[in-house]
């Protein structure tokens, strides 16, 4: 049982949770994730750790409402407990001083990107961060990003804030004007696919952090498998970060939709229970 100590909505569908998990707070590194199960009947879902406080023994998760489990989680309040939280899982981000790092985050992908931005900055890199969202209200963690980035470019699809355009436009702008040594992209699979295509044009090594469907998170089931460079890899133990230019995003996108029908039905059922 892991108690929620703090909850804060970033927008209608995105919420920050600070959760008691002392062991994980102590051992987690940028790039790691946890798997949670809300209650006895819940499913196991992966969530990337955005930050942690070793002293307080807490970790921070940023959650977007996408299905039944996240919808239920968003209704939970501080003081309530999550039945199971296990981690930190996955390999940590390999952080070193490479020169200039272009970090691009879309949607809630911005949350797991934060510790990576912080890590690269502290390792002595110049960090330029592109934050992308559909609209102004959905831009999250901008302040925190500014703290660790040399520059932050905000892109919104509708132009309601920052510049109008997709994440790739912001990335191109940076690449055009200066030498980028490494790019890190985290966000929806479709965004990562196009971000990877962009950096590939300029031969910039690029890391993507993949958010596949998972069950155990320890390599036991293969639910999380993706094709990387033509080989099947398990995101939970071989990743979650891979060479973005080698990832078969189309296959990943399809696999993410494995339970589209089941999820839609479950969501319908859930809505009926809360009404």
């Amino acid at each position: 049982m892991n108690k929620i100590v703090e909850k804060e909505f970033f927008s209608e569908n995105v919420c920050k949770f600070i959760i008691e998990a002392p062991d994980i707070a102590k051992s987690r590194k940028p790039g790691n994730f946890v798997i949670i199960r809300l209650d006895e009947k819940g499913e196991r879902i992966p969530l990337t750790i955005a930050s942690s406080d070793e002293g307080k023994g807490t970790i921070t998760l940023v959650v977007q409402r996408v299905g039944v489990t996240t919808a239920k989680l968003l209704t939970m309040e501080a003081g309530e407990s999550i039945h199971d939280v296990v981690g930190p899982l996955g390999k940590a981000t390999h952080i070193e001083n490479v020169g200039t790092v272009l970090c691009a985050g879309g949607g809630v992908g911005v949350a797991p990107l934060l510790p990576i931005v912080e890590g690269f900055k502290k390792a002595g890199n110049k960090v330029v961060t592109v934050l992308a969202a559909r609209t102004k209200d959905l831009v999250i963690l901008e302040e925190q990003m500014r703290e660790f980035s040399d520059e932050v470019i905000v892109m919104t699809d509708d132009g309601s804030y920052g510049k109008k355009g997709l994440v790739t436009a912001g990335m191109e702008e940076v690449i055009q004007r200066e030498k980028v040594n490494l790019s890190v992209v985290i966000g929806p699979a479709i965004m990562m696919k196009f971000a990877a295509l962009t950096t590939k044009k300029y031969n910039i090594p690029t890391i993507a952090s993949l958010n596949t469907i998972m069950v155990d998170g320890t390599g036991m089931c293969g639910a999380c498998r993706v094709s990387v460079g033509g080989k099947t890899r398990f995101v939970c133990i071989d990743g979650p970060e891979f060479d973005a230019h080698q990832v078969n995003f189309d296959e990943m996108l399809q696999r993410l939709g494995s339970y589209k029908k089941e999820e839609a039905e479950a969501y319908e059922r859930y809505l009926k229970t809360v009404q």
Binding site: V215, D216, T218, G219, M220, C221, G222, A223, R225, V226, S227, T232, F234, E251, Q254, R255, G257, S258
Partner: peptide, 25 residues
């Protein structure tokens, strides 16, 4: 723990489970 796959074409299509995943679910 780690399930083996055969490495043949199409093995990552939707609806192809490892026995561990199928039984665990």
């Amino acid at each position: 723990g780690l399930p083996r796959f055969m490495g043949i074409p199409g093995e990552n299509h939707i609806g192809i489970y490892s026995s561990n995943e199928y039984l665990t679910r």
